[in-house]
Design a binder for these strands. Sequence first.
DNA 1: GAGGCTACCAAACAAGTGTTTGCTATGGCA
DNA 2: TGCCATAGCAAACACTTGTTTGGTAGCCTC
Lengths: 199, 199
Amino acid sequence: MASSATAPKPEARGGENRREALLDAAAAMFAAKGYDGTSIRDIAGAVGMLPGSLYYHFKSKEDLLIAVYRKGVARFEAAIDAALGSTAGDPWQAIEAACAAHLSILLDGGDYARIVNPEFVRSFPPEMLPTLNAERDRYERHFEKLIAALPLDPETDRWLFKVALFGSLNWSQTWYRKGRYTPQDIAAAFIGMLRQKGA
Amino acid sequence: MASSATAPKPEARGGENRREALLDAAAAMFAAKGYDGTSIRDIAGAVGMLPGSLYYHFKSKEDLLIAVYRKGVARFEAAIDAALGSTAGDPWQAIEAACAAHLSILLDGGDYARIVNPEFVRSFPPEMLPTLNAERDRYERHFEKLIAALPLDPETDRWLFKVALFGSLNWSQTWYRKGRYTPQDIAAAFIGMLRQKGA
DNA sequence: GAGGCTACCAAACAAGTGTTTGCTATGGCA
DNA sequence: TGCCATAGCAAACACTTGTTTGGTAGCCTC
């Protein structure tokens, strides 16, 4: 998916930068005013372009949204990959590091991160939900593996553990304001609450 | 639909019922397709009315949304009031009961409940957010009182405890499907995970 | 039985929407 | 030099949106 399927790219002037600029503008405006609340004219205007010109880079508004969404998911995956590369053996430390990485993108990761929130996704055209959700499910599997490694009580439902943790994490978008807590603080506090004695 | 254009309507009159019907239709369509995704024509049509006629009952689309939202919050408050009226002294039991009540509305409470979700609210016209959030803050205060009564470790941040719990609860809207777990199951599991030994 | 109120219809309005089309300035390459 | 893809402009198209306006059928009261 990384390189567009069309041509061997001679890469003339303006180049890939304009496309990226459109993506950034779209992410910012989607995050601020929602998908429906943002018009093609808004996005194109933000980069000094006319509405019709945007259709040279993206074949539809939905296409643009998918591109933004993919870039959002990719940020989460990059962050968690980096965090897990440097953790030692302790599974509680590993999941706390993953949570901190997740939160750092979610809370300080800019506009792309907001787009990935499933409740935000609900406002998108319904026919694109399967595409977007598949993307996100793949990401969540990282956490499932980390949770599988935790030494929990046998009667603890690990799937409910996952959704509880994810809920706490993702909900932070609702209340987080810069300054009081860092993503690390929050991750440590949440994992501390869920951590069972004797483990 | 139905008998449309110029036919005389013998008993279409419904007094307050018509307003309620509009509220129900709006709640259903807002929940299904979002605020922007739902048009006045959709809502009016769903109760066999013409778009202009809706303006007899509500002075604007935003006015209609606020009415739906108020009704949604009221459902949560009624449920939690009922649940707390019948709990004994134990603070862990009390908060579990409140969570179960919250979840029962959130998950089985129909269309009104979806509207109250803050991430859903983000798609609304920004100038109405203060009005709506004030309504919701009042509701959350019930939970703050319940958490204040819990015998937690002294170093546990009770505010973070609240947002962690709320996150877990409200996130369930994302994954819940009827059948596997009941709201009571989920509440018991979540509180069980957060409950600290020795209390 | 005249007036007024309720609840709605019928039709339009102005503005905004995503998208399409035809055209053009630019620069790399043979 | 001529060719051709790139990147974008300019203007329209077809449609949907929330909302307003003027009218009116049925009921209630005086």
